[in-house]
Design a protein around this nucleic acid. Structure first.
Lengths: 129, 129
DNA sequence: GCTTGACCTTCCAGTTACTGGAAACCTTAT
DNA sequence: ATAAGGTTTCCAGTAACTGGAAGGTCAAGC
């Protein structure tokens, strides 16, 4: 498969597939005489694996680790679990932060009548804290 | 005030204050003969305003708008409200996304026993979807 | 007067994970 | 032969800083 074909199947932009090749995440299986990247089904499977991992918010570096573990038949599942647990912690932290933010913003938005007059509690809050 | 002094008072790294000057967000009040940036209390107030705005997740560009509105005595509070409402929408979208993610990750983490055996539902999920 | 240390300057590079665009080469069909 | 579409590499830009290098400035102490 050329890059266009595999991009379609993996549901990733060709630019991204090329990028993943550049950073050594999923390398092409080979090259044609003209220098075109070629990919096989195993590479396709990896690209889809990466797409899903990225959708879960794992960094490229985590994806690299997960792929390595995925390939390693003798892996300990605890290693995978650790990576996922860390990601879960990040997500929880971010959730807490955003929930606080949501409250603050909601309060501000509701406190401002939002008409054509200059009086604005939002600006006042940002100014005076 | 020199940059070190105002950084301390605004509770921002000097690097950041310099950056805000570079992008024209909060420019120094003047320069000494030696080229040192100098700031007055009005600039300090703006820097604090920006720090709080950034903490609420407003982009630099939004901060620029908010600062302009803050300075403009004839502003309409509806303009400020619009910016805040948009930010609130972003926050809500992100919250929804993260809540979904949290559920998925929790399920995966709990489904994996995390021992030294290779069997791992997390990798399976990323592979098979 | 000289040195030392803390401050300040500019400029360049790196971060994350791509994305857009340019110039040029390859392939396939007409 | 040519045109369309796919592919290559390389460079630059995104957001908002952050780190570091090389060098100028200022105040204090000897």
């Amino acid at each position: 498969m050329n890059i266009g074909e595999i991009s379609k199947r993996a549901e990733l932009p060709t630019k991204t597939v090329r990028y993943y090749a550049d950073v050594g995440l999923v390398k092409p299986t080979g090259r044609t005489d003209a220098g075109y990247r070629t990919y096989d089904d195993r590479a396709l499977r990896k690209l889809i694996f990466v797409r899903r991992s990225r959708a879960m918010g794992f960094s490229i570096d985590d994806c690299r680790k997960l792929l390595d573990l995925f390939e390693d038949q003798t892996r300990a599942s605890s290693e995978v679990r650790e990576i996922a647990k860390q990601r879960l912690t990040e997500v929880n932290d971010k959730l807490a932060e955003l929930q606080t933010l949501k409250k603050e913003l909601s309060m501000l938005v509701h406190s401002c009548n939002g008409d054509d007059r200059p009086d604005c509690p939002i600006l006042e809050a940002l100014d005076r804290g």
